[in-house]
Design a protein around this nucleic acid. Sequence first.
DNA 1: CATCCTTTGACTTTGTTTGACTTTCATTTC
DNA 2: GAAATGAAAGTCAAACAAAGTCAAAGGATG
Lengths: 145, 145
Amino acid sequence: MKRSLADKIEQYLKVLIDRSEENRIEIQRSELAETFSCVPSQVTYVISTRFTEQDGYITESRRGGKGYVRIARYNLPHDTENLNDLFYYSNYLTRNKLISSQENELLTYLLLHAFNQFPCETQEKIFEGIKTALNEYVKTESKGG
Amino acid sequence: MKRSLADKIEQYLKVLIDRSEENRIEIQRSELAETFSCVPSQVTYVISTRFTEQDGYITESRRGGKGYVRIARYNLPHDTENLNDLFYYSNYLTRNKLISSQENELLTYLLLHAFNQFPCETQEKIFEGIKTALNEYVKTESKGG
DNA sequence: CATCCTTTGACTTTGTTTGACTTTCATTTC
DNA sequence: GAAATGAAAGTCAAACAAAGTCAAAGGATG
């Protein structure tokens, strides 16, 4: 099996993602092109044919000075600090009857399903926002009734 | 993550705002430019591209001696289609006993409070994600028990 | 040899940095 | 108090830096 340049670049990127902390990498198209001694649009080709949403990847990019291409793999279960914090917190609130187990269930479901489309960074912020709001919610509830 | 000078200045300002009491800061353009060893118009560029009203910021400034630039972050009033949809949908589910009124209450609270920090566009996406997930949640619930 | 995938490069678009020039305002000077 | 001065901030366009697009050419594969 002969491997094309595109295959090699694909492999290279996937290894990088495997090794990354958050299943996401950030590269510079022109830099990578230089590494593989090819034209930059070759990289674009690889990304657009092998890192599609279908394949379980989300890509973002920015042009201009200090531009980049980000590739995130999202199929794997997200296992972020903030999310675990939130599960823990939500369960804690439930045990202490500050929220009902139904509320806990809904929240858990949403956390697992509603935000997968976003890049990790955004997810973190979302979870943070929810945590803060949840905290306020509990305080308000127990005060008001 | 490669960050351009503009990114760094943006970050710097946002940290300052975070640390501020009233979500507002007052800087001197030329001073900041000096801090980052760049031309003053770079600061103008950053402010005009990253602290727009869309992004949830209001800026004021004054020229001449004792000049300043003020940046204030405000909570975006979310009054989007999707949000209203979601309220409607959530209430509908409640009336039809597909979710409890407690769940409805929690959801409503989160929708109103957890995502104000995000730009409108992101909020829209968040609401969309929540709506989809909520829909699945209800289906799953009624199926499973 | 026909089709599909890959490679290449010219051109476009987007985003950043810089600097020359303009406007506005407070302060000083007459 | 009006005019001059200087200290800010604003404007705008050019130069630069990166990624995207697209189509043509080149190869592999059936």
